[in-house]
């Protein structure tokens, strides 16, 4: 006897969808009718200054993030070391660079010449700090190092999530600690590390706007420099908004690709 199966009807879903659409439409209309000259915003969207700023934003975000990840892994491994000195250096590092607001760190790096007028190895080579510490270098170091303090905690969490049997199996085939970390533990920890690290990367893209305070011409600074001249403040802020969202959309797609790669061998891969 084959009775026809009738699925439950989902009235609630249609109601919710209609409500969401209505709210979104209302917001779009409000923005469109607001006192914003969208044609001006559109005009400046691909202005040379803005595009150069966009390039600088992406470059700074990627390089600072790389520095943050590399240092973060080093600090995380130091934090889990059995050597108490190494351990405490890592704890102190995280305390310091997580504790000082990123904005202040940027300003301190930028003004490093006040503390160290010259840098280098005396007798071999020396540079004047003011020449070396360009806005880009200061922003790169400030954001990268601040990021590394956060990243190290993310990485440490990932390393701790790997079963201790994996360390033992790696030791049992004759690996020493660093090789076991690199070949066996870190690749497995990546599954746990990547989602929060993707979060940090997206945060980094937005934090690059801090570099505008030390005159680094990223997209925010570019927008400011234009509206100081033409007074189209809100229009140019929306130009910057558009590009931040665009970059972050691309990053989100990349993140899910990378996560899929490191999920190999996982049950829900």
């Amino acid at each position: 006897m084959a009775l026809k199966r009738v699925r439950r009807s989902h009235v609630g879903r249609y109601v919710a969808a209609a409500a969401v659409l209505a709210v979104v439409a209302w917001i779009i209309v409000a923005f469109a009718r607001g006192q914003i000259a969208w044609s001006v915003a559109g005009e400046f969207l691909t202005a040379r200054t803005i595009l150069v700023g966009l390039g600088n934003t992406v470059l700074l975000a990627v390089l600072a993030m790389l520095l943050g990840i590399v240092l973060g892994v080093v600090i995380a491994v130091m934090r889990l070391s059995s050597n108490p000195i190494v351990n405490w250096v890592a704890v102190g590092y995280v305390w310091l660079f997580r504790g000082i607001p990123s904005l202040l760190q940027l300003l301190i790096w930028f003004n490093l010449a006040l503390i160290f007028p010259v840098i280098g190895i005396p007798g071999l080579f020396e540079w004047r700090t003011v020449d070396v510490m360009t806005p880009f270098v200061a922003a790169f170091l400030g954001l990268g190092i601040a990021q590394s303090a956060y990243a190290s905690e993310v990485v440490r969490g990932g390393l701790l999530s790997v079963d201790s049997g994996q360390y033992e199996a790696a030791k049992a085939i004759g690996m020493h600690r660093l090789k076991a970390l690199r070949r066996i533990i870190l690749p497995q920890a990546m599954r746990v590390i990547l989602p929060p690290l993707g979060n940090e990367f997206i945060g980094m893209v937005k934090w690059t706007s801090l570099a505008s305070v030390i005159q680094f011409s990223e997209v925010m600074y570019a927008a400011e420099s234009i509206y100081y001249v033409n007074s189209r403040v809100i229009e140019l802020l929306f130009v910057a908004t558009f590009w931040y969202l665009a970059v972050i959309s691309i990053l989100s797609i990349l993140q899910s690709r990378v996560e899929r790669y490191f999920a190999k061998g996982a049950r829900h891969g």
């Binding site: 199996a169 030791k171 085939i173 066996i184």
Partner: peptide, 20 residues
Amino acid sequence: ARQRLATGMVFQRFNLFPHK
């Protein structure tokens, strides 16, 4: 680590490397 090369170990919970 070098001395461990003389011994092979099989664990109760296998401990295979899941990503390989």
